[in-house]
Design a protein around this nucleic acid. Structure first.
Lengths: 166, 166
DNA sequence: AATACTACGTCAATATCGCTGACGTAATTG
DNA sequence: CAATTACGTCAGCGATATTGACGTAGTATT
């Protein structure tokens, strides 16, 4: 955009590469600030981002199994286990035995968990809302389209099914 | 989008919140896959993402000082120190004494460092290029506008100066 | 010239979050 | 009954981040 030397005849290949690199950096900076929002709240509760991610997805998909959560987060069960048992111990997440398959432990937020989720997502929602409002509806559509394109083709369907819940 | 129960008269407040939450999740998934690209290459060199970030920004702004890099990455000098001295030891990053202020150590990539940078960014550039091509020019403009809106207002100027170099 | 500040590096201790490997239990499936 | 699956857990490790304290060289101020 405003990176073009005025009046020059830019090499289209260079332009493309420069445009791409700018996108990569914007993604870095936006994500850096975006994730920083919840940290203060988390620190007060003695938790980290891993807890936030678990709380977020359990909140959005109550009744999800441990396996489903694992494949969304793309971490090992050993890693999740630490986080999850902490959340259960502190009364933020409840586990109920699966009905169809009694080996499963269906995950859901307790009232305390919902309250924390609301606190945690508050700042992030405010940030995204502000950015959406400033950029306008068309920009939002483009934003979404590019993000979807950035996701691995193999699990784009799965992700969209998760994002557009039911 | 397709999350609206067909034929219902959706509450605009609910819609807004749902739309925002979808954006938050798309950002998570896109960034998750986006950052996974370089890991294989990094692992072969016995390095992690911290090294990648340092290499990336040094590559884009040769001659930058340690302090500048610190404020971009938003980590402590102790954290950067480990990474940086590793990169210097392995001959990927060169430090030259500042001319204006001889306390400064200006950072730049060696030829080996440039080669690694090229390898590392290759997959990411390919991913972003694909997403841009699929989504189209208008979508890209929207993508950029929203990302800029997500960045902290306080350092939006700084970031844009960094992204649009010179 | 003495003082204060800055840029950078480093030592030490700590926490989070990810990993692998191994083992166990309960429930389901063939 | 045997194999597989869902989940948990113990043990150890590595990468990345943190805070706090200290040192050294160079710059700026008084």
């Amino acid at each position: 955009m405003n990176s073009l030397p005025q009046g020059s005849r830019p090499n289209p290949l260079f332009l493309r590469d420069e445009e791409i690199r700018q996108g990569i950096e914007l993604l870095f900076f936006a994500y850096r600030d975006f994730t920083s929002d919840a940290d203060a709240v988390l620190a007060r509760h003695g938790m980290g981002r891993a807890h936030h991610r678990a709380i977020h997805f359990i909140g959005r998909r109550p009744g999800m199994t441990v396996n489903e959560l694992l494949s969304i987060l793309r971490i090992t069960k050993q890693s999740l286990s630490r986080v999850l048992s902490q959340l259960v111990t502190e009364g933020l997440v409840a586990q109920t035995q699966g009905t169809r398959d009694r080996r499963q432990r269906l995950l859901s937020l307790t009232d305390d968990g919902k309250e924390l989720e609301r606190q945690l997502s508050g700042l992030q929602r405010a940030r995204v809302t502000r950015a959406y409002r400033e950029a306008g509806a068309e920009a939002v559509a483009g934003f979404r389209a590019v993000l979807i394109g950035l996701i691995d083709e193999t699990d784009r369907e799965t992700v969209l099914a998760t994002v557009d819940k039911d």
